[in-house]
Design a protein around this nucleic acid. Structure first.
Length: 446
RNA sequence: GCGGUCAUAGCUCAGUUGGUUAGAGCACAAGAUUGUGAAUCUUGGGGUCGCGGGUUCGAGUCCCGUUGGCCGCCCCA
């Protein structure tokens, strides 16, 4: 047993693990480029205040924070959102709109590790700045879906739950609740899935029991799973209740945005991935409108991804008033889901070519070709030590190389090299000065 | 921060009521095999049995503590 091991919640990435993570990163970047997003990164270490300003002092308990040698309070980044707000805010005037940025980066949170949650993890973050309308949501939700579908996951594997904090506030306002009461109700809605009716106890303590009619309406609202039902619930309340004209027009405007998002995603053929679900509230208060989360269909994993609109955050962090929507997908849960569904490719590290070298005398000739082939971009392996031919062919086969190049004394005496197709075991001789061309030709076909 | 559970080779595990020098399979390496393939056989390296203390003539085994993994609670940006 080694004396030192990695810190709790941190992972070592041996080559197989690294290749698995790399597979995830590659697919994410591929998708982001297809959607026209630009990649950025920023320091892993940030001023602690960036996070306490955004999330409150309490957040420090969950951070890898410390005082640096200059006495600065600093923290490893626990998320990308404040950082990207800082970057965009600083140059907002000079950036072409819409601003569509993404990153693939590592984050650190001082929390107890659990299934799907570690202390160090990677996330894909995609954000759109400068677009207040639901067009940004369409773009981001479509990209979120593709970030998972790109691995071969389908609508039977995962789905995106779409909710709307504005709709909630406008609806509760129409029911006669003030802002503080509405927040307490939303916090109960957030916990309802886990706690049931007990979730409303803290509301009752602060504001008195909810009356039966209001409770029924609220439960109906977060029980809704399709848009037509949502519309008809609200339409029915317009008839049954005394609703002010402003509350009515706010709600109607929200419903129009909903129609736009759902219509847009349907036109993209993504309807089956999206479910209306107002029980998603997403705890932290900085979300200002639509919020969404992706889950696996079987429901035995933590959330795959989450995001939403945060129109006030850039300004709060010192930038201009800039609307924003974003989401993040984690590598840990995504990796677990891909393993579960057999979509994680096995580690492949096969060279294109394996050079079989007769002896020390032949090594120099082989080296010349090996270097030329490598410079041309081919992956070439050869044995470090002198080995029997039998061993070398075995090594070549185990390496997974498509071709073997044979540098024996007989071949070199004739000015040729044998090129062996490892899959069908056929061999042919080629002149030494045609090796590169012959390899190119042989590998082009398969 | 709280609770449950586990910890023996790189991996998966065995190890009797406490008893000699802690084992197997896989993996890795060498040889059989100095011009042709994933097989087979032989051999080898690799363990302070997570760590520390206690009980005992004797601890991988029992007790306490600790660290770490896994699972759950709180939290989840």
């Amino acid at each position: 047993m080694a004396t030192f091991q990695s810190l709790p919640g941190f992972r070592d990435f041996y080559p197989e693990d690294f290749s698995r993570r790399q597979h995830i990163f590659r697919a994410w970047r591929h998708t982001a480029h297809a959607f026209g997003f630009q990649e950025y990164d920023a320091p892993v270490l940030e001023p602690l205040e960036l996070y306490t300003t955004k999330s409150g002092e309490e957040i420090e308990g969950q951070l890898f924070s410390f005082k640096d040698k200059g006495g600065r309070e600093v923290s490893l980044r626990p998320e990308m959102t404040p950082t990207v707000c800082r970057l965009v805010g600083a140059r907002a005037g000079a950036l072409k709109r819409p601003i569509k940025w993404f990153s693939v980066a590592e984050f650190f949170r001082y929390e107890r590790a659990q299934k799907g949650r570690l202390r160090a993890f990677s996330q894909f973050n995609g954000d759109i700045f400068g677009e207040p309308g639901p067009e940004a949501e369409i773009e981001l939700i479509a990209m979120l879906i593709q970030c998972l579908a790109g691995f071969g996951l389908t609508k039977d594997d995962f789905y995106v739950r779409l909710s709307d904090r504005d709709l909630w506030f406008f609806y509760l306002e129409a029911l006669g609740f003030n802002d503080e009461q509405s927040r307490a109700i939303l916090s109960a809605v957030d916990r309802y899935e886990k706690m049931g009716d007990d979730a409303f106890m803290s509301y009752a303590e602060a504001h008195g029991e909810l009356d039966f009619v209001a409770m029924t309406k609220i439960k109906a609202m977060f029980g809704v799973r399709d848009f037509n039902r949502l519309e008809s619930l609200i339409a029915a309340d317009f008839v049954a209740l005394v609703v002010t004209e402003t509350a009515r027009s706010k709600l109607n405007a929200r419903l129009a945005d909903w129609r736009k998002i759902l219509g847009g995603l349907e036109a993209m053929g993504l309807k089956e991935f999206v479910q209306v679900d107002l029980s998603v509230v997403r705890g932290l208060a900085y979300y200002t409108g639509f919020v969404f989360e992706a889950f696996d269909r079987k429901g035995d994993l933590r959330a795959l991804a989450g995001g939403g609109r945060y129109n006030n955050l850039v300004k709060k962090l010192g930038g201009p008033d800039l609307p924003a929507v974003g989401f993040a997908i984690g590598d840990v849960t995504t990796g677990l889901l891909l393993e579960q569904r057999g979509l994680m490719p096995s580690f492949v590290n096969a060279p294109d070519l394996y050079a079989v070298i007769g002896g020390e005398a032949e090594r120099s000739a082989a080296f010349a070709d090996i270097q030329a082939l490598r410079a041309a971009g081919f992956r070439v392996e050869y044995p470090f030590k002198e080995l029997a031919f039998g061993k070398q062919f075995k090594a070549a086969a185990e390496s997974g190389a498509k071709l073997a190049l044979i540098y024996g004394s007989e071949e070199l005496a004739n000015g040729v090299v044998k090129i062996r197709d490892m899959s069908d075991r056929t061999e042919r001789e080629i002149p030494r000065d045609h090796v590169l061309a012959a390899v190119r030709d042989a590998l082009a076909g398969g």
